[in-house]
């Protein structure tokens, strides 16, 4: 899609959202060595275009579910940044009261229904939520984000089959970042078969695009979400992208020799944030001054969130025994 096809304020919004996710993840990297965040973090640096391009079409009433690498989805869906930061610090003001950490973000007001690290397991939950929406005649689309390894879990096929059968308003979004922990796709899946073809085999419309091109993501996601909203059933979208940092943690992992620095460098050349910035500037949709202002505003918001998280209290011991059964 050409930027000229799109309203300027939308393009600028996509940029702002991607930059915000990038800056938050980089802030976590910067602070992680302080050893105050005692929580595993799976960061999404390099993959920002997908949550942003997809969630730009969603309203708060729509549902999003995610997996362990969920910061981008949570933020793009409108999840509260302060509550996320506090959660990563394990504080009682966190979105899970300091009990769930980075891998269990939740924000019901924003429609961020659930995230959990059991790979693929939020997929049927999203399907069930969509089924409930249909039964309750609620105008709601459910989007489930997962990675390339989730398609290796049996439940993904079970869920796709069920969603097609019941023609549910779900969009399945596969972020194919080419690695599961440190195992490349080549040792896990047949190379002659593309991931999106799995959904085709179930009779589901399934499409593929460059996951580092936010405009492409935005275009494809818009069609799929609109289709679901009209009651025309589910769609599977595969977006190819790349994880810049290690599977879990704030560092680079090239020293493990599971992937090459050349490969990482090649993908960094295709940075989703910089790519859009280049287009915004060259097509006259944004100015360098405007972008600096956006970054400065995000930095302020982020500093506040970190201050809030650090200043918040840890949960009291009695919280340990709460929320096992309903009161």
């Amino acid at each position: 899609m050409q930027l000229v096809m799109m309203e300027a304020h939308i393009a600028r919004k996509l940029h702002e959202q991607m930059l915000r996710i990038r800056m938050v993840e980089e802030k976590i990297c910067e602070l992680y060595s302080e050893q105050e965040m005692r929580c595993p973090v799976h960061l999404c640096v390099g993959q920002e275009a997908i949550p942003v391009g997809v969630c730009a079409h969603l309203a708060p009433k729509d549902y999003v579910l995610s997996g362990h690498r969920s910061h981008g989805h949570y933020l793009a869906k409108g999840g509260d940044l302060k509550a996320m930061m506090a959660e990563i610090y394990g504080k009682v003001t966190g979105c899970c009261m300091g009990k769930g950490g980075s891998m269990h973000l939740i924000d019901l007001a924003a429609g961020f229904l659930a995230a959990t690290p059991i790979v693929g397991s939020t997929v049927p939950i999203g399907v069930g939520a969509a089924l409930a929406s249909v039964m309750r005649r609620e105008d709601r689309v459910t989007v489930v984000f997962f990675g390339d390894a989730a398609v290796e879990e049996g439940v993904l096929c079970e869920s796709i089959n069920f969603a097609v059968l019941k023609r549910l308003p779900v969009v399945f979004v596969c972020e194919n970042n080419a690695y599961s922990v440190n195992s490349p796709l080549s040792v896990r899946q047949p190379q002659e078969r593309e991931i999106y073809e799995i959904a085709l085999g179930h009779g589901m419309e399934s499409l593929q695009a460059d996951g580092n091109d936010v405009i492409a993501v935005y275009g494809l996601a818009g069609k799929a979400i609109d289709k679901a909203r009209r009651g025309n059933g589910p769609t599977f979208l595969e977006f190819k992208t790349y994880r810049w940092l290690e599977h879990c943690g704030p560092n680079d992992d090239c020293h493990l020799e599971c992937r090459s620095e050349t490969e990482l460098y090649k993908w960094k050349e295709r940075c989703p944030v910089r790519m859009l910035e280049g287009r915004l500037l060259s097509e006259g949709v944004a100015t360098p001054e405007g972008m600096r202002l956006v970054a400065a505003n995000i930095a302020t918001e982020m500093e506040e969130a970190v201050r809030f998280a650090k200043a918040s209290a840890f949960p009291d011991p009695d919280l340990l025994l709460k929320h096992i059964y309903a009161p």
């Binding site: 997929v123 969509a130 929406s133 309750r136 869920s159």
Partner: peptide, 28 residues
């Protein structure tokens, strides 16, 4: 058939989608 749902033979999906239904206002 929307309230008595014959599902595919897929227990993981049956329970998983029932969890989704339960947190979305139904009593599966």
């Amino acid at each position: 058939p929307w309230r008595v749902i014959d599902t595919p033979l897929a227990e993981n999906c049956i329970v998983g989608s029932a969890v989704g239904m339960a947190i979305s206002g139904l009593r599966p």
